[in-house]
Amino acid sequence: MSDILLVQNIDSYYGKSHILFGASFSVKKGETFCLMGRNGAGKTTTFKNIVMLVPPKSGEVIFNGKKITGMKPYHTARLGLGLVPEDRRIFGLLSVKDNLELGTSTGRLGHWNLELIYSYFPALEEYQERMAGTLSGGEQQMLTIARTLMGNPEILLLDEPTEGLSPVMIKVLKDLVLKLKELNTTILLSEQNIKFSMAVSDRVAIIDRGHMVYEADVDTFRKDDEIKMKYLSV
């Protein structure tokens, strides 16, 4: 399998504070790669560096063999990087349907369209005329994923999707991610929820205070309780 996304030796700062220290990993086509780490470890920052919301100070991001370091975020979206931000950022004053239609702004063609989205997310069809801001937290999480899928990304970047969701919604989300995997969707996930991560991932990496400290396939990770204690317990 070939690497679709390469993150090479990235250093990143917010102002003067150094957040990522030489982060490197790669995501293969069709796999679900999970970046784990405690609150504040640097998961979101890594995602922001990949889509160039925060361009890395040094290091490279290579997507489909092409250097994307320093591009504008809208350009990375058009190339096929679909970020689902952890804070969801739906457009609350627009309707659910309008939110979904804005997702097509990548101009990318693919098999996702409104009809298919509604078959995967029946609740969104039911609420399509409602203002998105009136949806529940779980529904908003579904909407933000669906909105990004509408742009037919080549890789889906899901930043802590289970955060703040009820156990029932986490189950719904798990089923959705498993369905996306069946469609051979490439997914880069960030999580703190170990159970969720083990249920959906193929490979797992751990980031700790801006350093990549671990990488293994999910079966190895499943058995590795010492690592979980050391880097992921709260």
């Binding site: 919301l53 975020p73 809208y74 979206a77 950022r89 457009f91 627009l94 997702g103 909105r147 742009g151």
Partner: peptide, 14 residues
């Protein structure tokens, strides 16, 4: 309309 509430997110959609 979307850009007037969250222009960065609009950019992330392409």
């Amino acid at each position: 309309q979307a850009a007037s509430t969250d222009s960065q997110m609009v950019g992330l959609l392409g």
